[in-house]
């Protein structure tokens, strides 16, 4: 399963790179969502995939019984998801506000800060 997940992550990354290269900033945003999902999956899978053994300690025991899933990447991914959401929300409001003020979603036309020199 891990190799298959790796291949799937490759597809996710390829799709997000393709989206982020678009001129439309909304597509860029979609790429951002996909690439954070891909990154989370990479971290998660790097800690190895363990089926049906959540990292919980049963009542009465001092440590997990038998092998349980790797808790460390889970903790990392959990906060990464929330932060990724914060990043996404900020980017979305930025795109939204940009569209309202500049009237475009095309990144080539957003040249307020870096005006093109000498015509074209």
């Amino acid at each position: 399963m891990e190799i298959l997940v790796a291949i799937m992550v490759g597809v996710l990354v390829a799709a997000s790179v393709y989206l982020m290269l678009a001129r439309n900033v909304l597509r860029f945003l979609f790429g951002l969502i996909l690439i954070s999902n891909a990154a989370n999956l990479i971290i998660f899978a790097s800690g190895r995939l363990t089926a049906e053994a959540p990292p919980l300690i049963p009542e009465g025991a001092d440590a997990p019984l038998g092998t349980v899933a790797n808790a460390l990447p889970q903790a990392l991914v959990l906060t990464a998801i929330v932060i990724g959401f914060g990043l996404f929300a900020f980017a979305l409001t930025l795109v939204y506000r940009t569209y309202q003020n500049l009237g475009t979603l095309n990144s080539d036309e957003m040249r307020l800060a870096e005006p093109e020199e000498g015509g074209k």
Binding site: V82, F85, G86, A89, L92, T93, Y96
Partner: peptide, 16 residues
């Protein structure tokens, strides 16, 4: 923090 931050965002966007 999570509760407040998300509602800050969603409500501001809703009102907008």
């Amino acid at each position: 923090v999570v509760f407040g931050s998300i509602l800050t965002l969603v409500l501001a966007l809703e009102e907008e």
